[in-house]
Amino acid sequence: MNKLTIFGICIVGFFIIIAIFAPIFAPYNPGQIDIENILTAPTSSHIFGTDSLGRDLFSRMVYGTRISLMVGFIAVGIASLIGIALGAIAGYYGNWVDGIIMRFIDIMLCFPTFFLILAVIALLEPSIINIMMIIGATSWMGMARLMRAEILSLKERDFIYAERAIGASDFRIITRHLIPNAMAPVLVSITLGIAGAILVESSLSFLGIGVQPPTPSWGNILSEGKAVMGAGWWMMLFPGMAIFITVLGYNLLGEGIRERLLKS
């Protein structure tokens, strides 16, 4: 395996472990306010320093990992549900069903996605659930296209004819045979999508409509860091690096998967 892929896997794994075992890693309660120690630079007791309410930045980062990864995973989960379902339906049924779905995809692809996300989140409200749903609802198009293309080629294969001959239902054929066999290229999209969603959340936080405090996310910690820029470099550095490294990790992992697919 490519060294870069291994590097990607390490990063991804590292942060997933942190997210799962957040309570073990965090030395403090992430909501513990300490106004005697506002914006203190990293020390041995607060290894990442403290934020503008004296909370331990390291603990907030650890819990923020949970939130940021959750946003990434669930948003992409939603996107892949929509993408895979629509792609599979379009590919399998063809004809006018395909026509309608593909035109719909074309339309969705025309929108500057971030504008759409921004509009909907600002007009509704920036709750975590809304953020995940809207990122999901605006990022499924690529997956749908990939899925459709795969299914178009798969459905002519012998084993599908065999299934049909024994009277399997369309639903069964699609969910049991076509989708599992067509998942590989979609997997790359999913990996990259997680990285994208984390970035989108940080952009939304920059505009003040990302995950809302006191819930920590990497994006809103970074955006808090922006407000105290010059008085607390650690508030900018650590969350920025976390986003940067994670997104890099997912991209390298995605590339790795893609390479393997091309080879096999």
Binding site: S203, F206, F244, N251
Partner: peptide, 21 residues
């Protein structure tokens, strides 16, 4: 490999973070 990492660095940096720096 170097270029792979380089271009992904660009992608992975939050825009506003990079801009402010």
């Amino acid at each position: 490999r170097f270029m792979t990492v380089f271009v992904f660095i660009g992608f992975a940096m939050p825009t506003f973070w990079l801009s402010l720096i």
